[in-house]
Design a protein around this nucleic acid. Structure first.
Length: 300
DNA sequence: AACAGGATCAACCGCCCCTGT
DNA sequence: AACAGGGGCGGTTGATCCTGT
């Protein structure tokens, strides 16, 4: 693969990193920062591509990485966040301090996915594979069916959406409609997950990641976008606890199919609605306790 | 001890998005 | 508006380790 010295410079090295390479990369970044990844290898004296260097740094050498076994709380958080966000590992990783997306992805693929499967849960949908009420396994699966809880969260969000929508339309009547709507507030991946589950709604697109430059854009027609959002501690907490729909009422309103607001597609029995909401609140609180644990906490 | 099969995880690849020109 | 470069993301691969026979 890698030829001997004469031609070696022309060919970039691949495969496992050596200790020397690690030291070179580490030393360079500590002194200069990574700067442009593409030009880094030459400056640092590495025969690697910039991409490889970036990967090595972000997944292994970065000082703020926690390695080793995942705690049960981390596992729970991953499962729940995956139910919410799907395979968006980087988004999941932002809620798991000191864990990399690659590590989480590996952990999911090699362990959690299998475990859920054994429990009778489809890891892709987080729904029980068998009908609930059958075996003990499937009952257990039903209990941890996050999709159901997620639907409940959505119901609550939509109910509030309707309220806010009415309020908003009144306000708009009072204002000049020629004034363009304010830029959408920074939102997060949770909202995106919520919205993307409404595939008929026209595709409001909200992305959140404190490490990403990509943070907000709205609907496929490109109505608006917001970049460079910086995470505020507790944002996730507030958003979810105080109701998912509140993040960007204006834009949700603008982007959602009005027929959705009638909630015909989610006509769960109103008798169980309050109970579901309560369960849902507990669910979110538990999740929030996980994801909002202080970084220095021994929990993680 | 040797082998096979499964599990794990670091690293690569290809694609996509954003930004600058 | 179109293009190119850079960076990030998710899927996949392959080497290595582990475990059971």
């Amino acid at each position: 693969m890698v030829r001997s010295n004469g031609q070696e410079k022309m060919e970039l090295k691949k495969g496992p990193w050596t200790r020397e390479e690690d030291q070179k990369l580490l030393a360079y970044i500590e002194e200069h920062g990574h700067g442009s990844w593409r030009s880094l290898p030459a400056k640092a004296g590495l025969q690697r591509c910039g991409k490889s260097c970036r990967l090595r740094w972000t997944n292994y050498l970065r000082p703020d990485i926690k390695r080793g076994k995942f705690s049960s709380q981390e596992e729970k958080a991953i499962i729940r966040l995956h139910a919410l966000l799907g395979n968006r590992w980087s988004a999941i990783a932002t809620h798991l301090p000191k864990r990399t997306d690659n590590e989480i992805k590996n952990y999911w693929n090699t362990r959690l996915k299998k475990r859920l499967t054994r429990m009778g849960i489809d890891p892709a949908t987080h729904k029980p594979k068998e009908s609930p009420g059958g075996s003990a396994q499937s009952r257990q699966a039903a209990v941890v069916s996050h999709m159901a809880q997620w639907e409940t969260a959505r119901l609550e969000a939509e109910a509030r959406l309707v309220r806010e929508s009415k309020l908003q339309s009144k306000l708009q009547l009072l204002q000049k409609i020629s004034v363009p709507p304010p830029p959408p507030p920074a939102c997060l991946d949770v909202l995106k997950a919520w919205q993307s589950s409404n595939t008929s709604s026209g595709g409001l697109f909200v992305v959140y990641s404190p490490t990403s430059t990509l943070n907000f854009s709205i609907n496929s027609a490109g109505v608006g976008k917001l970049n460079g959002y910086v995470e505020e501690k507790g944002m996730f907490n507030n958003l979810v606890q105080d109701d998912i729909s509140l993040c960007s009422m204006n834009n949700l309103e603008a982007s959602m199919d009005p027929t959705l607001l009638s909630s015909d597609c989610y006509n769960s029995g109103t008798s169980s609605y309050a109970g579901e909401l309560e369960d849902n609140k507990n669910y979110w609180n538990e999740l929030l306790n996980l994801v909002n644990s202080p970084v220095e906490s021994p929990v993680f």
